[in-house]
Design a protein around this nucleic acid. Structure first.
Lengths: 166, 166
DNA sequence: TGCTAATGAGATGTAAAAAG
DNA sequence: CTTTTTACATCTCATTAGCA
């Protein structure tokens, strides 16, 4: 996947979030009064299995981890969104694999984007360029994709100032 | 900066090595004679799409597994249903083999579809999409038409994984 | 602080199981 | 077999909360 590095980047961010969270979790167990405490309707255990109900350990695992979708990934997602705003499951898996995000994350992104669009908050995102890489025959239609490619494959040349991305 | 990623690449790889590569591998790939080009994923894999990826295969509970019948398969089944809504055992086996589903699954589908029809819930079942070809301005309102166009005119791009037919 | 990723409730469709 | 019920999968919508 061309986003392999990006994926790892995101994972690192999440990891760091979890690690640094150890020990300082001030916002644990803040529940809104409106929110009900019951788990999902069908009894599916979404929370950590609480059969050991004594709950002495009280690990601060409640922290919600937020995936950072990088600009390059966003471009890709928006590209796909233009083609199909409501992709099938199979399509979703393909996209997730390509972009290097979990399927669930991609699914949520599409849901949120759809909702955003319905509310009229849709914004064009990707910068279409359709340019060729100066160092190899690769062709790109999105600017950020070219940038990723350059940093991944031709970072040395770029560093020498031989090329201007714009 | 897009170059910042590279700096972390090394440690990221190390980190990634430690992580138990949570690669979701849905390649169950049940194949059926019909539509050989689509890789059918309707295999029995525990879905339960919730994040947490707790795919540890020691789930002791009675998990009712639900087959996902793909649109292409549905098309085929409805086609057969129009011809004969109550097929014989032999026909059932034929249909099951051709569509790539277990006989029992097809049997249940016919039962449920019959019941649905009796209750007046019969669906027209048209695959209207109104999508534009990702590679040229051609517009299609029927899914199968787009698929034909893609395989006929842009098979190379499709093969390169630049776009997914579904 | 704004944008948005993630969550949860509620609705819908339907495959599978149970009942008849 | 049919009818009914259960449970899973996925969507929308409203909210909550994390990060730049």
């Amino acid at each position: 996947s061309p986003f392999g590095i990006l994926q790892q980047h995101a994972q690192l961010q999440q990891l760091n979030a979890n690690l640094t969270d150890m020990g300082n979790n001030p916002s644990t167990a803040i529940q809104h009064p409106l929110m009900n405490m019951l788990n999902n309707v069908a009894g599916q255990k979404r929370k950590f299995d609480d059969d050991t109900e004594s709950d002495i350990s009280d690990q601060p695992k409640d922290k919600r981890l937020r995936t950072t979708i990088l600009p390059e990934q966003l471009d890709y997602l928006y590209q796909k969104y233009q083609i199909e705003s409501n992709p099938s499951r199979k399509m979703l898996e393909n996209i997730a694999r390509e972009v290097g995000l979990k399927k669930r994350v991609v699914q949520v992104w599409f849901q949120n984007t759809r909702a955003r669009e319905r509310k009229g908050q849709f914004r064009a995102h990707a910068q279409v360029i359709n340019k060729r890489c100066p160092f190899c025959p690769a062709l790109f239609k999105v600017k950020s994709a070219l940038e990723s490619h350059l940093t991944a494959k031709h970072s040395d040349q770029c560093a020498r100032g031989e090329i201007n991305i714009d």
